[in-house]
Design a protein around this nucleic acid. Structure first.
Lengths: 235, 235
DNA sequence: ATACTTAGTTGTACAGTCCAACTAACTTAG
DNA sequence: CTAAGTTAGTTGGACTGTACAACTAAGTAT
């Protein structure tokens, strides 16, 4: 019983979902969870984006809620996290009118390794989809997330957040290429990255079966850099 | 009483707000509404973004709800409309945990003229603010909308949606300059706009006290164009 | 006619990417 | 010890589109 009678009308369900990207093994992947198999649940057994209801008592705000759900599934506390958008309609959830606030997160290779909760699993992204059929409208949300990620990678330093703490320039370029799914030009890439006030060399080299490469790390507390041009777009 | 007892927990309030931009008189302006003066209402008499609660029965989805609120205030049916993001926290609304889904709309000069609902008024944007103190966290939301608008104008054709149906290239350039609050270079601007498959000349000229200018219109059903570079950013 | 204003063009300089060939540094096979 | 193979990193010329500035074009007002 409300003290404000004007607020006594039905409210939509409110959830938060998180699209978690990483490159755990040389391919762009997304972390999905399997829904409970009880028949009383919507989409029992289906794969879905990690998420759930907002807890009015526990969650201070939407982002805190997203951070909580991310930590639950991955143990990661402060990765790159950006709001993607919200999806709400009468039909997207069989339990009733429901609106979800969606965030997307980028995890470094090292962080991705820790994300092995029992019910969570990494799925490779193929085009703008993932193999299994997803619950709710999560396929549509995932598609939007991939499009946004690809669009921003064209003109930002976002892939830096997909790297381990120390990385070489060719490794960073490889991350760009994995996300964009096309090769980039080496010398232009290096010029751009070194001109941006983004990374700094450390006194260490990556050793391998051939010429060692300079190791870099992100400059501290670096928010993403925006470049004035996109990479050469394919047509 | 729910048939699904697991859904019997308190839900946040859910609203939709719309940031409506236009250039009604050579300046970027936003449409605000005055909140009811009854003391039982939050922020009585304050100016706020147009919006309100989602109507579970009437609104098919969030965007339909935004379109409805936009139509209420302006009479406009299909302007440029894009989701900005969502804001939700325990404290942003004195009535309780509340999440709002925010859209932003761009209106042409002609459409802006029609938007004269009794309680609505245009306010000029000064920097990233507006003169009056806004209700709720709407000042923060407005700031985010302005930042997003300016950022996208650097590399998209969004200002085309702020134009009347027929316009000249110098007029379009002026809209860019008003939003960005800095002058642009004439010849590069023309080259870019004409290279984009965005506008087409019509068999008419804009007559004035000096040399007439070619009139253009948007090519039909044109979604915004993304350019590969930003305009020359100020240092 | 002349001055004034705005529309629109032209030419040169410049920045950054594209492309391709080059040098550098390491490992491994013989 | 040398040669082949691989990846790191550099270099130089072509090309694209913007920056800047000067120019021509077309109208009005005096």
């Amino acid at each position: 019983m409300s003290v404000r009678p004007e607020l006594d009308f039905p409210r939509p369900l409110t959830t938060v979902d998180v699209v978690i990207f990483a490159i755990p093994s040389d391919a762009l992947q997304v972390l999905l969870v399997q829904r409970p198999k009880a028949e009383s649940e919507p989409f029992p057994g289906s794969w879905a984006l990690p998420g759930g209801f907002v807890d009015i008592a526990g969650d201070r705000d939407l982002e805190a809620c997203a951070v909580r759900k991310l930590k639950d599934k991955t143990g990661v506390v402060s990765p790159y996290l950006e709001q993607l958008g919200s999806w709400g309609s009468a039909t997207r959830d069989p339990r009733g009118w429901c609106a979800t606030h969606v965030y997307f997160a980028l995890l470094g290779e090292h962080a991705a390794a820790g994300a092995r909760a029992v019910d969570a699993q990494w799925f490779a992204i193929d085009g703008e989809k993932v193999k299994p059929k997803l619950a709710f409208d999560h396929a549509e949300i995932l598609q939007a997330a991939i499009q946004r990620l690809r669009a921003k990678v064209e003109y930002t330093s976002l892939p830096a957040y997909l790297m381990p703490p120390e990385f070489t320039l060719p490794e960073l370029q490889r991350s760009y290429e994995i996300v964009l799914d096309r090769p980039l030009e080496k010398s232009a890439f290096r010029t751009r990255m070194l001109a941006a006030d983004l990374i700094e060399p450390i006194a260490k080299m990556r050793k391998g079966p051939n010429r060692p490469a300079q190791l870099y790390r992100l400059k501290k507390a670096k928010s993403p850099v925006f470049f004035a041009r996109t990479f050469n777009p394919p047509d």
